[in-house]
């Protein structure tokens, strides 16, 4: 097991490990912080590090951006010498970025609504208000049934 960890292996996998650290930073913000806006930012960080992971898979050493060179008439010149990086992860991630913004905006709209309803955007505050509401409801219900709920 340990002899796998040659210098080349470590350098070649450093990118994955860095992106995992970034991902875990984002996940920590999502899980540990109570502020809803901060949770969304953490989610964004998590998302972008997943994007970076995918793009790094598509990179080829010595490769260039996957765009063909053209001459002045706009005709494509093919040069078999040029290595292009893998365009498929790029396409995937382009879609994912736009969908990510869609989810972000929806989450932020929900936050605005929650703030309007509860007057707070802290998870703890919302939980306290919910608990009080449930207690109140049970009390009212119990009185209506003519006993101790």
């Amino acid at each position: 097991m340990l002899e796998e960890f040659t210098w080349e292996f470590i350098v070649g996998h450093m990118n994955y490990w860095l992106f995992i650290v970034l991902m875990m930073t984002g996940l920590y913000v999502v899980v540990a912080r109570g502020n809803l806006v901060k949770k969304i930012v953490g989610l964004n960080i998590f998302q972008v590090s997943v994007f970076m992971l995918y793009i790094s898979i598509g990179k080829i050493t010595g490769g260039t951006a996957p765009i063909f060179s053209t001459n002045l008439q706009g005709k494509i010149k093919l040069d078999p010498e040029i290595v292009y990086s893998n365009p498929l992860p790029h396409v995937l991630i382009l879609t994912a970025i736009v969908v990510g913004v869609a989810t972000t905006s929806l989450g932020l709209a929900l936050i605005v609504r929650i703030r309007e309803e509860y007057g707070t955007i802290e998870e703890q505050g919302i939980l306290t208000i919910e608990r009080d509401m449930v207690h109140e409801e049970e009390r009212v219900h119990g009185e209506a049934m003519g006993g101790r709920g």
């Binding site: 080349e8 070649g12 996998h13 990179k59 080829i60 050493t61 992860p89």
Partner: peptide, 13 residues
Amino acid sequence: DMPNFGDPAAPAS
């Protein structure tokens, strides 16, 4: 189990 960064022989490429 992942291939090295930028490896031209990686399955993705």
